[in-house]
Amino acid sequence: MTDLTKTFAALSDATRLSMVERLMDQGELPAGTLVDGFDISAPAVSRHLKVLREAGLVEQRSEGTHRYYSVRPESMRRIANWTIDRRAFWQQSLDRLDDLLALNPEEDTQS
Rank of each mutant, 00 (worst) to 15 (best):
I79M: 14
R96N: 04
L52K: 01
F89Y: 08
M76V: 07
V58D: 02
I84D: 04
E59N: 09
R78T: 09
L57G: 10
V58L: 13
P73L: 13
L100H: 09
S70W: 04
E54P: 00
Q92L: 08
R53H: 10
E63I: 08
D99R: 12
H48R: 15
A88I: 11
A88R: 13
S62P: 04
K50D: 10
H48P: 00
E74A: 12
R87L: 15
L52P: 03
M76E: 01
G56I: 01
E59H: 09
E59F: 08
R67G: 02
S70L: 02
L97Y: 00
T65S: 06
T83S: 15
L101P: 05
N81W: 10
R96C: 00
E59R: 13
D95F: 08
I79T: 04
E54K: 12
V51F: 05
W82P: 00
F89I: 14
G64H: 04
F89W: 14
A88S: 09
S70I: 07
K50R: 15
E74L: 03
I84M: 15
A80I: 02
N81V: 14
T65A: 05
W82S: 03
I79E: 05
L101I: 09
Q92R: 11
R96S: 02
S70E: 14
A88M: 07
D98A: 13
L101H: 01
R77H: 10
D85F: 05
W90I: 15
S75R: 07
L52R: 10
G56Y: 03
R87N: 14
V71A: 10
G64F: 14
A55M: 02
A80E: 13
H48S: 10
R77T: 11
K50P: 00
A55G: 02
Q91H: 07
Q91Y: 07
T83F: 14
